[in-house]
Amino acid sequence: MKKKLIAIVVSAAAVLPAVAMADITVYGRAHVSTDFLDDGADYSETNISSNSSRLGFKGDHQINPDLKAFFQIEQEINFTNGGDGNGFNTRDTFVGLSGKKFGAVQLGRFDSPFKVARGPANLFGDQVGDMRNLTRVGNARFDERYDNTVQYTTPSFGGFNAKLAYSVHEGESAQVDADGDSLKTDSMSMSLNYAGGPFEASLAYEQAEEDTGRGERDGIRAAAAYKLTDAFKMVGFYQTLDYTGTDATSDATRDLLTSDVYGVGGEFKVAANTAVKAMWMTRDADADSYDSDMWVVGVEHKLDKAVRIYANYAVVDNDDNVALTPWGQARTATPGGAAGEEATGFSVGLRYDF
């Protein structure tokens, strides 16, 4: 299916006049790593992973001086095996209108404001050691793209802007129960964001109703970054999630998925194109013996603006009843962990943005 869609798009681009393609950009990311992963028990293997690699098309059209239309279509691309995607829209895909005075409105399927709000503190995104290994656990997770979403983004006021997104329902159409009553499958997400000078921060809230696929839950997230010098940046992160689930959810499950996650990190440029990074995070669950700590160190070198190489070493230390790993998110190589063990990962990666 994906091959057919790509062929159609490429063929159409080849026959369109150059002027018609002037505002359309083909972009993407090839991100692959070689990883040695050890769960602390029986698994200790070398893997090659495709890490949120993607191909996309985006563009805009100036309707008049005060109004612009824009779109994006983005697909995850697996560089290591065939994958299982069935459509050309598995990542952020949307269409919308924007203006300098009123901001932007978009509709489609894309990262929620809550998900994007981790950005200021996201030192190891899509790599071994990604913070989502602790923030995105089980059915309580919130780092999501929601179906059937409309989002409003305000203009920037003194470095501040706000995002408000509402997902009408999951799936192709709204659903009803056996009595004909509407199921509550909507979700809401919002964030307040600031970027100015050496400081960048986001504060977000998200809530999902009881009939969504993972049940009722809500959360608050805060992330910040501050450049103490041109070479050194400090970051901090905090998240609290309250998981209610459904009527059938046990109190024990609610306790193990309700949690606080927080951490600090830093990035130091040792040369113009080379940085050393480190971060420590902890997940504190309401349930006993379900806590985890993660720390990660890495070095990244940019060969130029488009290509970078890196090496990371990450560890997750688990309590007796939990089996998290530092490699479980945003990657194709995701073997499971072992409860109560210390999982370690060493990764060498190449990322090419085009």
Rank of each mutant, 00 (worst) to 15 (best):
L123G: 04
E341P: 02
T93S: 10
P335N: 05
T253A: 00
A30S: 15
R91N: 04
Q239C: 10
E170D: 13
R29Y: 10
T25A: 15
A140V: 02
K58V: 12
N51G: 09
A12H: 13
W327P: 04
D186M: 09
A18P: 05
D39F: 03
K184D: 15
F124I: 04
A174G: 11
R118S: 15
R351G: 00
D177I: 06
L324R: 01
G349F: 01
D111V: 03
E74A: 11
K4Q: 15
G337D: 04
K163R: 03
D260G: 06
I220R: 10
G213N: 09
I48K: 11
D293I: 08
L55G: 10
Y238M: 06
D143A: 11
V316P: 07
F268E: 11
T249Y: 00
V95E: 03
P65I: 00
N318W: 07
L203F: 10
S189W: 13
N122E: 12
A20Y: 06
N139S: 12
R214F: 12
F124T: 05
W280R: 05
K163T: 00
L303F: 15
D84N: 14
A178W: 05
G328Q: 01
P326E: 01
A18F: 06
N148M: 07
A20G: 05
I77Y: 12
G82Y: 06
L256D: 03
D304L: 12
L183Y: 06
D130C: 05
